[in-house]
Each structure stands twice: as C-alpha cells, then as structure tokens.
C-alpha cells in the first residue's frame, strides 16, 4: 500500500501536512436497490405509525361526522403506503434476478454451509465484545444476513400477505385481492387473529429497525468497512487492506 503526502494528493487545497492511504472500494449496492432501501424505510415508518393509530385511534373529534375524516385519512395513508411498500417489494424481488449477486443475498440463506455458521459465531463474538475486531465483508456479515433473512425478509412477506388480506376484506370477498390473499383466512379463520398477528408483526419490524439502525451506525464507526455511505452511494469502502 502506498501513502501519498501533500503534493501527491491532487486536490486544490492540499497542503504538505495532508496524507492519504490507498483504500479499496467496491460497488455493491446498485442504484435501484438503494432507492428501494430508502423508500422501504420511509414507507415502513409511515405504516408503523398509521398502523398503531388504526389500532389505538386518536382522541375523538367533535362536530358532525360528515365534517371529519380522521380515521379514514389515517387508514388511507396506511393503505397507500402499504401499496408503495408492496410494489417496492416486487421491484426488489425483480432486482434480485437482474441485479448483481449482492442483490440476491437478502433472499438466500446458506443453511447447509459450515463456514457460514462459523461466520455467524465469529460475528456474535464480536458483538459480545469477545473479539477485538470483526471480519470484512463485501455484502452483509453472516449475523446480519441471519436477521435480514429470518426477521426482515420473512417479516415483510408476512406483513404484506396479512395486510392485503385485511384490505381485501374491505374490497369484498369476491374481489380480485380476496382471490389473491384470501388464503390467509384459511390459516386464521377469524379476521381478529389476522389483525392481532399483523399488529405483532409491526413490533417485530420495529425491533428489527431499532437493531438494524444501531448496528449500522456502530459498524460504521467500529468495523473495518463503511456502512451508511454504502447505502447512499453504493460503494463499500474498506478501512484497511489486511486479509482476513
């Protein structure tokens, strides 16, 4: 690895005191994936807030019923965001087929690969403060992949299926949506249970998001690679050039 000082850096305001090192950077997350990530994060937030308000509505408004549409608006925002989330999800699945191989990681789980599980244990030890440093990964680290697959990916499928099943009830039992999602009521014949589990799914995703954001920020500071900027520019920058 070479080191450049002062004039070796081709910047207008470089001084002799400035130094830079060579670092590797890999383009991992392509633009559609990044756009999806942030649209998804936004809609999920909107869905969690409006969903909570559907279950525990705001205090009653006074006046004529025809003058207000508070609950109706909250529900409308929820359904609109639900559609955006679902369409985005379809786009994300499409991208898993046509995008680079990192676009597929969210949907695959190397259950039978020993080295994968060793990686999970390694990362878990890093989080338990029993390792001085984590390994470097171009894609997700094994522990992250575990949570992404089992909590986020399956959680999304569950929320979209139950959400559209509930929505289909409003559309009517002979609607197209009901034909597509009515099977949810074969699993939970009483719609009340679908509400309850859709609601619990929200908490699962809330906890996922809390952990995810914490882990991303922490890794960005403590790990050997970039995190947050990776989901903005797509570039994964490694902070050292040592082999693992």
């Amino acid at each position: 690895m070479s080191m450049h000082i002062g004039t070796g850096i081709h910047a207008a305001d470089a001084t002799a005191g400035d130094a830079s090192v060579d670092r590797t950077s890999i383009y991992v997350y392509e633009a559609p994936l990044r756009v999806w990530h942030w649209v998804n994060a936004l809609t999920l937030t909107v869905l969690a807030v409006t969903g909570y308000l559907i279950a525990s509505p705001l205090p009653s408004v006074p006046g004529e019923a025809s003058e207000s549409f508070v609950m109706g608006t909250v529900r409308f925002i929820h359904f609109a965001a639900g559609y955006v989330l679902a369409v985005g999800w379809l786009g994300r699945i499409y991208w898993a087929f046509v995008g680079n191989h990192h676009a597929r990681q969210l949907f695959t789980f190397p259950f039978w690969r020993r080295s994968y599980w060793r990686g999970v244990i390694w990362e878990a030890n890093w989080y338990a403060f029993r390792r001085a440093e984590p390994k470097k990964y171009v894609g997700h680290n094994p522990l992250a992949q575990f949570v992404m697959f089992w909590v986020f990916m399956l959680g999304m499928v569950f929320m979209i299926a139950t959400g559209f099943a509930l929505y289909a009830e409003g559309e009517g039992t002979d609607s197209l949506l009901y034909a597509l999602f009515g099977w949810v009521f074969a699993v939970f014949p009483n719609s009340q249970s679908v509400h309850t589990w859709h609601h619990l799914g929200m908490w699962a995703l809330v906890i996922y998001s809390m952990t995810h954001i914490y882990a991303v920020v922490r890794e960005d500071i403590l790990s050997r690679q970039s995190m947050i900027s990776t989901m903005i520019s797509g570039e994964r920058m490694f902070k050292d050039n040592r082999d693992d």
Binding site: V61, A65, S66, F69
Partner: peptide, 10 residues
C-alpha cells in the same frame, strides 16, 4: 360514518 370521522365512544 363516526368510525371514518374518528368519533368514538371512549
């Protein structure tokens, strides 16, 4: 209509 308006018995 009271449901949609957000008018509930509390």
């Amino acid at each position: 209509p009271h449901f949609d308006a957000g008018q509930f018995v509390e």
